Simulated scan of single mutants.
Amino acid sequence: MADKCDLCLLGLIILSSLLTGISGVEDHVFISSGENVRLSCNNALPDCKSKTTWTYSNRFRHSVVVELITGVIKKKDTERHERLSLESDCSLNIKNVTEEDYGSYTCQQYVNGQKQGPDARVSLHVLHVSVSSSSSSSSSSSSSSSSSSQTEISPGRSVTLSCQLYSLFSCDDLVSSEGVELLWVNQAGVDLKTDSRYQILSSSSSDQYRCIITLTTTLLNEDNNREWRCRLTHRNQLKTSVRYTVKYSGEKTLFSDRFVETFTHWLYSS
């Protein structure tokens, strides 16, 4: 019963902190899906193996606080436990981050059963890109879950890349209060809004808790192996980005290779 009360109290504390706004509440970590992340426990004691508890809260996905890890014992009732590990400095490692990992993480320290110092809270924001493409005769869609993705498509298709930032905080707060900005740029880092062949649209989800920026364009022959990046900056500092590389289908590549081979043979034979 006491454990349940402790969890309820912790949940109320985290929820209260989230409702007060973003500034000054906790540390903020921005990461792209598919990458590994390390969350620091800023109030760590010298020996944390048996004295550290990490919990996770997300009011959109869980109505209660989920205990992720205690010491080096991972809680088996969490779907992500195989991706978690505890560092010697009490930091929490999460491998292969997904968009569902966003939320508030809390590190607590205990000595002889008594909590020591304030909670160390970290808000994890996850950047994720999904892809859809279509042509006049057919359409297809796929999603990206890594920081560098490729999709096999073909010239003439219209492709839309949707870059979304998953967060516990509203998009308006992130943009206006924290100076978070999402941009689609080319390999040289040039904002694609300056190129008329790209349609760039910024918006937020219906619940206002996801910042979204989409890129739509019709693919050209020369777009094969072209790279676009969704870049996230926080107060004018680059925090993370997702790369998307266009890769045309094998038939297209094979045809091109045969054409080049035939043309080269003809050129040297004439």
Score class of each variant (00 low, 15 high):
Ser147Tyr: 00
Ser205Phe: 01
Asn186Trp: 02
Thr78Cys: 14
Leu267Ala: 15
Ser204Cys: 11
Ser130Ile: 13
His128Trp: 09
Leu124His: 05
Thr106Asn: 12
Ser40Phe: 07
Ser139Lys: 03
Leu192Lys: 02
Ile73Gln: 14
Ser50Val: 02
Arg197Ser: 08
Ser137Glu: 13
Ser137Cys: 09
Tyr102Ser: 08
Asn96Gly: 00
Ser33Ala: 15
Ser146Pro: 00
Leu267Phe: 14
Cys90Pro: 07
Gly113Leu: 11
Ala44Phe: 08
Val129Arg: 00
Arg121Ala: 10
Ser205Ala: 07
Glu178Asp: 12
Gly189Gln: 01
Ser139Ile: 01
Ser143Phe: 05
Thr20Met: 09
Ser177Trp: 03
Thr233Gln: 12
Ser17Leu: 12
Val246Met: 01
Val37Met: 07
Val37His: 02
Thr151Met: 06
Thr245Cys: 03
Lys239Val: 13
Leu161Arg: 02
Ser177Ile: 04
His81Ile: 11
Gln208Pro: 04
Gly179Arg: 15
Thr245Val: 06
His265Ala: 13
His234Gln: 01
Asp119Val: 03
Ser85Ala: 14
Leu183Thr: 13
Ser270His: 06
Thr217Pro: 04
Leu39Asn: 06
Gly179Asn: 10
Thr217Glu: 12
Arg243Phe: 08
Ser16Lys: 08
Ser177Lys: 15
Asn96Cys: 02
Ser137Gln: 12
Arg258Gln: 09
Leu267Trp: 14
Lys247Gly: 06
Asp223Cys: 05
Asp89Cys: 14
Ser85Met: 12
Gly189Asn: 01
Ser88Gly: 03
Phe255Gly: 09
Thr264Cys: 01
Ser132Pro: 01
Ser104Tyr: 01
Leu267Glu: 13
Val190Ala: 03
Leu7Ala: 13
Ser170Phe: 10
Arg231Thr: 06
Ser256Trp: 07
Asn93Ile: 11
Leu12Val: 10
Asn224Trp: 04
Gly250Ser: 08
Asp119Gln: 08
Ser40Asn: 02
Ala44Val: 13
Ser204Lys: 15
Ile13His: 12
Gln199Trp: 01
Asp223Leu: 04
Tyr105His: 14
Leu161Asp: 00
Leu15Ile: 07
Val29Arg: 05
Thr253Lys: 11
Val29Asp: 15
Leu7Tyr: 13
Gly189Leu: 04
Glu100Val: 00
Val185His: 05
Val72Ile: 08
Leu92Gly: 06
Glu35Cys: 11
Asp47Asn: 08
Val64Glu: 15
Ile13Arg: 09
Asn236Gly: 04
Gln114Asp: 01
His62Asn: 12
